[in-house]
Design a protein around this nucleic acid. Structure first.
Lengths: 240, 240
DNA sequence: CGCACCGTTCGGCGTTCGCCGAACCGTTCC
DNA sequence: GGAACGGTTCGGCGAACGCCGAACGGTGCG
């Protein structure tokens, strides 16, 4: 009763609904898993999260209904992925905010194999992260192609560098060319946005790096070491 | 039972807990209200949200406990404000994500007075937003002081411009100098970050603009019109 | 001192929510 | 056709949550 009297911001409801989509541990785990940019089946996610298939089906319904996920049905499979780069950024932003709290605990050595592969290099939705992402970003910055001191933007030399690489950068899209994405393991910003995505795609196309298994971990090839050290002066030891 | 079998991301819990803080309409309304950067008393927020004081007290407990709000007790008052600029950015990011959905409905003329004042100029935590924020950002960009085409960063000329203004920009802090903040009414990015905050503070100090009442709406003075049109070529008509 | 006021704590209410297992539907493969 | 499999729907359960009013404890003021 009397609800009409409040001057509560009309955006509050929408904001709460959006946050509610992430405010469940299982759905949060789904979003984090999908940050690898791939499409997962409902069953894979259910197993990953450790809940019943029926439970996960309901979660997917909410996430898709809320516009966070896009789905694609193939035969008896339901593939879902993050709806677009904006959703990926949203999850990244939220994750960046919790990173300082969850001080990386010293883990045992058991699963350090997979973990260290992830720490070395991985994709974060559609761009590089991990030590690889940092190394590339630092290389770009050191060569004056990217400036991070007064914000985060490519320089004119940086534009030329991408041009010389044969990578088309579409500046007309709504997506910013360069954007900082805070790295989870390294705690430092790395290159995201259209340029980060284009560079990652180019590197995979050129065989500079390959995906390890089906996950988001990537490994730099010998070709990649040569290319990255030549183009950006990246220390070869940092990539292996 | 069997929960140990899942490989669920350990960050999922923290992510869900963070989102849960925002996932309530009343708490969301508090965060949006506090985006003006001021400190509100618990009672003011309760009235603003249209809930009982006891209800709001519990909400504040959660928000403060979760690190989103900082509190300051003075006498029988409890003042709360956003904990820091990072929290403000978090709320902005979330709000930017819902903006496209909530297509601004054509409002009646009843409260258009206050609304239009807000649309003209307001502060967004600690920097300018609204048409004023856009005008300043566009002015900086047109004069080559800020570049938005390849990311979002001040140029060297921009650094000099701030220096000539007598505004110290602390680049050593963890906070980025320039950052894009998506405007709610204008749907365009405007200058946030340390530079945006410093410029806003400077403008208020110099009397270029004054706060209207106790809210976040601001009004550009005649001095301000002269200063901004002289320094940035901002069209005077856009500011009034 | 006594009163008004701000905020908190507590008990209780109703709702929402996440979860599961069972039943069901459609696809794929033998 | 039949069996196996992936996914969805449904009913039901228990827990968590948001809300309130009433009672209580400080603070400030007359």
């Amino acid at each position: 009763m009397l609800e009409g009297m409040t001057s509560k911001d009309p955006r509050a409801g929408a904001l709460a609904r959006l946050a509610a989509l992430v405010a469940d541990e299982t759905r949060a785990a789904c979003l984090l898993a999908l940050l690898d940019g791939r499409a997962w089946t409902a069953g894979e996610l259910a197993r990953h999260c450790g809940v019943a298939a029926s439970t996960l089906s309901e979660h997917l319904g909410k996430l898709v209904g809320g516009g966070l996920l896009a789905e694609e049905r193939q035969g008896r499979h339901r593939y879902v992925r993050l709806a677009d780069a904006r959703v990926a950024q949203l999850v990244e932003d939220l994750t960046a905010h919790i990173a300082p709290d969850a001080a990386e605990p010293p883990r045992g050595l058991r699963q350090s194999g997979a973990d260290s592969a992830m720490a070395r290099g991985r994709t974060c939705y559609d761009h590089f992260a991990g030590r690889l992402g940092i190394a590339v970003t630092d290389g770009l910055t050191a060569r004056g192609l990217l400036r991070q001191d007064t914000g985060f933007a490519l320089t004119d030399a940086g534009l030329d560098w991408f041009g010389a690489l044969g990578v088309e950068l579409d500046a007309r899209g709504r997506r910013p060319l360069a954007r900082a994405c805070l790295d989870w393991t390294e705690r430092r910003p790395h290159l995201a946005g259209a340029a980060g995505a284009a560079l990652c795609r180019h590197a995979l196309d050129q065989g500079w790096c390959v995906r390890i298994g089906s996950g988001r971990a990537v490994k730099v090839t010998e070709d990649g070491v040569r290319a990255l050290s030549g183009l950006l002066g990246v220390d070869a030891a940092a990539l292996r």
